[in-house]
């Protein structure tokens, strides 16, 4: 029944726009939880989703942090992967063709050590067929130069966003860190620099200690907390940011069910990203999409925008 609802002409309008990025529906998969798409292809039809944000890539390949990189906490997951990725050239050569062939709306998450590197990345991705937008990662907490330096200072966030915007004609979404005093300040800086949208939140800086071994569990000591445990924090931040800026907001943080997704859309998000839930259940994103459509039909919502709470 849900599948029929999706294709009904008289069903709710699901498409959303983030600047020049058009999504057929508001459900995306978050960077770092869906690989480069192909890994999931046996289990779900990625082209049915609004889009996917591929694993963050850098100018050169990165090896990532020393293990252990994972630890499960109550309703949450701690990770310190360390931005392991194949590098932009391998991505273009080996990963992008598959995404293009399978008509997956593709957002490329980029990260760098310097403004210059972000700029070079944006220039390399510009004009590549198969790439629909860039998500600028200024928020990874797990590497010293993971971009988080740019995500905690409004001036630096402005500079890096402006550099990326100038270097490419693709829609640019800036992914924000929750590990700041005032996330609105950073969001406003990104907006002023020309960002087409902001996505939030990245993981919360966190840790765990092994009391038998009397040492931190993660090889990197600190990691990023994701999963249902962080959802209320993320929702609050999405509510605040969507009232502080006029560009679209993409809500991320512990979204596991369609009800979670609706909360974020009501809080002010134009679209959402499913992260840790996909690691647990590969079809989580599609389940959320179907649940969202059913909810809209039952409650007579005609478009995604109507869900937003106006205050």
């Amino acid at each position: 029944m849900t599948k029929e609802n999706l294709s009904k002409d008289n069903g709710p309008k699901l498409d959303v726009k983030i600047g020049g990025l058009r999504l057929k529906n508001p459900v995306m998969l978050a960077s770092g939880t869906c690989g480069y798409g192909e890994e999931l292809s046996d289990l779900i039809d990625l082209s049915a989703l609004g889009g996917i944000v591929v694993k963050g890539i850098s100018l050169e390949a990165r090896t990532g942090n020393k293990p252990p990189r994972l630890f499960e906490t109550p309703c949450g997951l701690l990770n310190a992967i360390g931005l392991e990725n194949v590098g932009v050239q391998s991505f273009l050569k080996e990963k992008l063709p598959w995404l293009k062939k399978n008509q997956v709306t593709t957002v490329v998450n980029i990260l760098g050590n310097s403004i210059d590197e972000y700029e070079q990345m944006a220039a390399l991705l510009d004009g590549q067929s198969g790439i629909d937008a860039i998500e600028v990662n200024i928020s990874c907490p797990n590497v010293k130069k993971g971009g988080v330096l740019f995500g905690t200072d409004p001036k630096a966030a402005f500079e890096v966003t402006r550099a990326v915007k100038r270097a490419c004609s693709l829609p640019v979404i800036v992914k924000l860190s929750p590990n700041v005093t005032d996330i609105c300040e950073i969001a406003i800086a990104a907006e002023e620099a020309g960002a087409d949208g902001v996505s939030l939140i990245n993981t919360l800086l966190a840790m765990a200690i092994d009391i038998e071994k009397r040492r931190p569990v993660l090889g990197n000591v600190f990691g990023g907390l994701s999963g249902p445990a962080i959802k209320p924090v993320a929702l609050r931040m999405v509510w605040q940011v969507s009232r502080a800026v006029s560009i679209p907001v993409v809500g991320i943080g512990g979204i596991t069910t369609y009800e979670d997704a609706i909360e974020f859309l009501m809080a002010g998000a134009s679209a959402i990203q499913v992260g840790t839930a996909t690691l647990v259940k590969p079809a989580a994103g599609l389940d959320i999409l179907h649940g969202l459509v059913d909810f809209m039909l039952q409650n007579n919502y005609q478009s995604i925008g109507e869900l937003k709470i106006q205050d």
């Binding site: 869906c34 999931l40 293990p67 990189r69 840790t276 690691l279």
Partner: peptide, 20 residues
């Protein structure tokens, strides 16, 4: 320890002669 088991999260790294 694994989270996804299918190459999505890259959490289960182990050292090899050719890197992780």
């Amino acid at each position: 320890i694994m989270a996804c088991g299918s190459g999505l999260c890259l959490g289960c790294a182990v050292r090899s002669s050719g890197g992780y």
